[in-house]
Design a protein around this nucleic acid. Sequence first.
DNA 1: TGATAGGATGTAAACGTTTACAGTGGCTTG
DNA 2: CAAGCCACTGTAAACGTTTACATCCTATCA
Lengths: 337, 337
Amino acid sequence: MGITIKEVAREAGVSVATVSRVINDSGPVNEATRRRVERAARALRYVPHGAARSLITSKTITLGVLLPDLFGEFFSEVIRGIDQRAQRDGYHILVSSSHRKKSDIEAALQAMSGRVDGLLVMSPDLSIDALQANLPEALPVVLLNCEVKGMQYDTLNIDNFGGALAMSRHLLALGHERIAFVRGASGNHDADERLRGYRVATQEAGMWEAALELDGDFSQASGHEAVRQALAMSPRPSALFAANDAMAIGALSALREAGVDVPGEVAVTGFDDIPISKYLSPPLTTVRVGISELGAQATARLIEAVEENGNRTKRKETAPTHLVVRRSCGMHPENSP
Amino acid sequence: MGITIKEVAREAGVSVATVSRVINDSGPVNEATRRRVERAARALRYVPHGAARSLITSKTITLGVLLPDLFGEFFSEVIRGIDQRAQRDGYHILVSSSHRKKSDIEAALQAMSGRVDGLLVMSPDLSIDALQANLPEALPVVLLNCEVKGMQYDTLNIDNFGGALAMSRHLLALGHERIAFVRGASGNHDADERLRGYRVATQEAGMWEAALELDGDFSQASGHEAVRQALAMSPRPSALFAANDAMAIGALSALREAGVDVPGEVAVTGFDDIPISKYLSPPLTTVRVGISELGAQATARLIEAVEENGNRTKRKETAPTHLVVRRSCGMHPENSP
DNA sequence: TGATAGGATGTAAACGTTTACAGTGGCTTG
DNA sequence: CAAGCCACTGTAAACGTTTACATCCTATCA
């Protein structure tokens, strides 16, 4: 349908090889000829046919991104980071989101196969067995925020454990003795690690108690519900650490409905530091995760893997998190470390 | 690098044509042969080479999605809608986001050209002149939430005007006489239309006043700032309508800091109905926009345009919005229409 | 029995590039 | 002046598919 290199060649009075050399700036070409070709290409609005190019070079300059069924800001941020980094190096991104079931993932994998030079997989819910089976083994892969088994894949994780540990210790340092924890979605890697951080810190201090762990699934609604349970306990917990900000927001709303003062009667903290956290009342103490940086870093790794096709050694990396202290924990931010 | 159709053919003891017929289920093939081919393909883990396919069929089964520099939930939601709809029909999506400048768009357009069967463009900030110049004129395009000029493109817009009109009238009906409005980002189509709805409603009621329009840019921070100005006015407005929820959240936080009761002293409303709105305190009265449905609908239109390649007549459509009444406007939700 | 139809399969051209290789011609060098 | 080099350009093969066309075979029908 479109203009082909042949027509440009004819228009410019040269061979297709020369046009190709001009377009890709490969091989020597006389200055006058180059200008003639460029003019012809522009006049005809020539755009190289991507598929034909890919066929011969066996490069697609496209990165596949496989995402779970992600809601809210997290999704946007991670994509932003990925896309910006990819654009910088001239890569496109082919995204496929909303995968819950194993069969979904397999289908998506199949479909992407052959259309991408590398794959970025984020799937905190699923194990990666499904990958093994459905992937051309030559395809570079970077795992983002997945549970890792061996050293067969490059992986990048958030320091969920460290962040939860720091937050729990922070609350303990403030003198809280009964700290309730609202768990994230079950089977989710992030959720598990955050829980682990909470447990280690509270057990260390001798303050752990099974009843203080409440169910949640990362949704605002589940945070709301968890508060109902927490308020029914006696003695009532003096602090509530939600495994993400969305649940902390739900908790805050439930506490207000119940007429419980935050942080006066109960301290509340979250995890993620989504942009609104700062504007809640009281502003939420939480753990900051550089989400878009995470995406960008993973992408950088993937591009690296794609370009130096040699057998790089796989690496596991962890992106740092840090505590951001606002009012909801009861501490005056100015006193924050 | 991978397994080709030839190797499958050899393995199965047939010609490549037969393998192709089996893979695509085109043309007749004996049942026994079919099974032999399928077995061979599975054994070799054969995956057709996408580029080669595209080259010959001149279809990429990929849709390009061009997005502005979008933050927050809006982005996620629209992508979710697009991706789910695209997956349903077997299309991939190639996304390119974070475009502010005209040159960015042009570059992205060039890059996508030839790699997609159709293009979904969302760019409320920019005019579409840039499109005209850089697009293969044969490429189907659907404009999402863009300012429209003629009838040369299919377009899909949110009923920003209607929503803002309804919200303004709602506040007027509650007896508010001084309703401040926090504008969205300047030059943004959505922002303009929402402002227009506010103006028409207030002027209709004889309550419009230039000073009641406050600057904003859709960010929480700008909502926060707008409140400072609103509180300095005298008489003070009794209601504040922010052009989106993020600004309403910023406003809520500033009002609380200033010790102003919502909705007792000032009613606050937003626009978008992002998921957290329900969990704010007080829960936010806002205008609901089916964001992911919007994305899905636009995608459906694009696929339609791609598949029946004939010269369809372009359509302009508007997605409805509706008022969702919660506590922040002072009206008890149960009384809502 | 011979003609005919049509199911099953194979052959080879085409899609639009890139690139190895083979020329050209002009210039330098011995 | 021959030889060699270099900058420039063209020719044609290759990439992995799909598909029009040709071929073969078997079954049906007059």
